[in-house]
Amino acid sequence: MSTQIQEQETETETETEQTSEHQTRRLAEKRERADMRERAEADLSDADEIVRLKIFRYDPEVEGKKDPRFDTFEVPFGKGMTVLDALIYARDHFDSSLTFRHSCRQAICGSDALFVNGRQQLGCKTQLSDLEWPVRIEPLPHAEVVKDLVVDMEHFYDQMEAVEPYFQTNELPKGELEEQRQTRENREKVKMSTRCIWCSACMSSCNIAAGDNKYLGPAAINKAYRFAMDEREGEDMKEHRLNIIEQEHGVWRCQTQFSCTVVCPKDIPLTEHIQELKREAVKSNLKFW
């Protein structure tokens, strides 16, 4: 909303002016918040339906918020409202300290994977009408919570980097200006695997990744699949990629629980891809005998 406007003031002011400036800003913000609350009350009394959210709260930097707890918010429900819409409403109208990641709101940036009613889902892609109410919203399991619904993604990104998630090839086309073309069949083969948005829902759902911190995890293995199966990378590169994923903490740790496949918001057949890589790795090893 418009709480940011006051910050655009120029900074070349004397101290006294700054204080008063600061005070006016605070008062304005306070008024704004009061307005929002009033509006929220009006919204709530007008609404046909009210959805109750139980949101996980935790803030290590504020005394009294260090113990994790659940806060309940009541938000007016409108047709087509998603979990993310409800979270934004709650933050803007009731508690501006409520923290969660979001960006594109259309399931492409991968920032708002949350644990909603006991399942990893994208907040922006999950309709409130599809859920049981009250809706329980928690940060992703098996990751450390930084604040409220925000988890530390560092480990996930490390695993993604480990599989070299970018196109590499030793087989360049002859002509300098020639395009590196892919067959339609090959494109179809890797199509689903290219859809990953790095949201980490799969990693969070994986029971093995939870126990074995070195396990690459479904997202990284799927990324490796996307390039290992891309014929343009050539045989050398494929072997290199198989070498990475057939490490002890690579594909072999997958126990085919299908948890990742069940939660993937982009419907990537993750287990199928991991299984195919296992077979590829075995086949390429058998060739040497």
Partner: peptide, 11 residues
């Protein structure tokens, strides 16, 4: 070794 122990145990 061409005998890859991890994949072999899986197989």
């Amino acid at each position: 070794s061409s005998f890859e122990p991890k994949g072999t145990r899986w197989l």
